[in-house]
Amino acid sequence: MIAKKVLLVGNFGVGKTSLIRRFVLSEFSEDYISTIGVRVSSKIVKVGNEEIKLLIWDVAGTNDDEKIPKAYFLGASAAMYVFDLSREETYVNLKNQIEVVQELSGLKNITVVGNKKDLLTSNEIDHLIKTISVPVNLITSAKENENVEDAFTILAKQSLN
């Protein structure tokens, strides 16, 4: 089975960990995770006839003020940038933040996901997507388990390219 390292990045509180919790069950303690700033979880995903073991590195934040070791981004085959649809500060600098992830990871394509769909109306979401500087690949709700599986399938497909 192929194993791929994939990244999950985005500001604090956007719901990255909730997305992972919906997708896999993590066994590491929270104290540990907050100390080193990353959580590694694994999940087997089927893409076509192929099974891929995703090693998901949930990196806490990408801001300059958050001292995250650059090594966390190395060797990744795909990355998902998650922002919170209900908090402007998590997508106001989306373009720059994605460029930072691209630079650190060496990846060209980053899957952009807007989470917390359940907190906005469909009109608000449509309007918001138009105003955001980068194309949004998927809108999810970890709380209502909407499009979570799809987001990770996109990530798995991307890791094969």
């Binding site: 194993a3 090693l55 190395l74 060797g75």
Partner: peptide
């Protein structure tokens, strides 16, 4: 770089060696 496990030997029973090697790499980088 990736922290992916290429091969291993284990006397004990580690449930998910891939995850352990990922976390070990993260701790090492940290």
């Amino acid at each position: 770089d990736s922290g992916l496990l290429a091969g291993s030997y284990s006397r004990g029973k580690i449930a998910d060696k891939d995850m352990v090697s990922g976390m070990l790499t993260a701790i090492k980088s940290f």
